[in-house]
């Protein structure tokens, strides 16, 4: 009896020690890469089945997925999946307010205009009391497709469904303005500045790309200046210091022509006007 008790205790102790040692080692193991978001869109029948046959629940699950996805690091293929997921939400519940709102805020700016328009059309039909789906659909048509006439027609058609008199008048006014003036780039530029980085307008897209490359150069210069100060225990006074230390390959060239400056803290900054020569 005593021997049995001792044996059991020893066994428990030995197993505990082995487990703890293994757990410590497992903790040190490197973790695998976290699965990226928006890799797959399940077929609709499967989504319905997983939601216990409830299409509204399937819509909410998918909308939640679209809502929590981190859009900043997504590539074109992932945006295509996001568009598919949001189209599914719209098929399950076309009146889903969050879905059409997220769709119009993200999808057309990331090359998924068609999906965005489908979602907005469905929302417009199923939400006759809501002027916004029609307005966004018209804006997308106006801006991305440069089709002021069709955009104007969308607003006119939608205005007849809108129950609120003020919204109805506002939509008709906008429709009339677009119908008269056609497409004007200044309106498009405002929308681009307000909503996203990517644009269908070639001029503005070029402008943004130049801005992006300018900021990227600044980042590189700031990194070089930091390395210089750590290495030499001295702040860089000019870009020549960085060049002579081999931290940059050439003197910075600003595509806008304004140039860069190193401030009194030794940190490179952007110049937003031309320096007197």
């Amino acid at each position: 009896m005593l021997i049995q008790k001792i044996t059991t205790s020893l066994l428990v102790t030995a197993l505990t020690v082995i487990y703890v040692l293994l757990a410590i080692n497992v903790q040190r193991l490197p973790r695998g890469k976290i699965i990226e978001e928006m890799q797959i869109a399940l077929p609709r029948p499967i989504q319905i089945g997983l939601a216990f046959g409830d299409s509204n629940l399937a819509a909410n699950f998918a909308a939640l997925r679209a809502l929590v996805a981190n859009n900043f690091n997504m590539n074109a293929a992932q945006f295509a999946v996001l568009a598919r997921v949001q189209e599914d939400v719209s098929a399950f519940n076309p009146a889903h307010e969050d879905n059409y709102y997220i769709a119009t805020a993200i999808l057309p700016w990331e090359g998924q205009l068609k999906s965005s328009q489908i979602i907005l059309q469905r929302a417009r039909i199923s939400r006759p009391y809501d002027y916004q789906p029609a307005l966004y659909e018209a804006i997308n048509t106006y801006h991305f497709m440069k089709d002021a006439a069709t955009a104007s027609n969308i607003l006119i058609t939608a205005s007849s469904q809108i129950t609120d008199a003020n919204n109805q008048i506002a939509m008709l006014n906008l429709a009339a303005r677009w119908s008269e003036k056609g497409y004007t780039p200044d309106t498009a530029e405002k929308i681009v500045i307000a909503m996203a980085k990517q644009s269908n307008n070639p001029e503005f897209k070029k402008y943004l790309l130049i801005r992006a490359s300018r900021l990227k150069t600044l980042q590189k210069l700031q990194h070089a200046a930091l390395t210089y100060s750590v290495k030499n225990k001295l702040k860089a006074k000019s870009f020549n210091d960085l060049l002579q230390s081999g931290l940059i390959e050439s003197l910075p060239n600003d595509p806008f022509g304004f140039g860069y400056i190193i401030d009194h803290n030794g940190v490179p900054q952007l110049l937003n006007k031309k320096s007197p020569s």
């Binding site: 609709r44 319905i48 216990f52 046959g53 409830d54 399950f92």
Partner: peptide, 14 residues
């Protein structure tokens, strides 16, 4: 039965 009955409408629409 509950899943079939409930998803029938969505399946038909699909």
């Amino acid at each position: 039965f509950a899943i079939c009955g409930k998803s029938l409408g969505a399946a038909i629409a699909y």
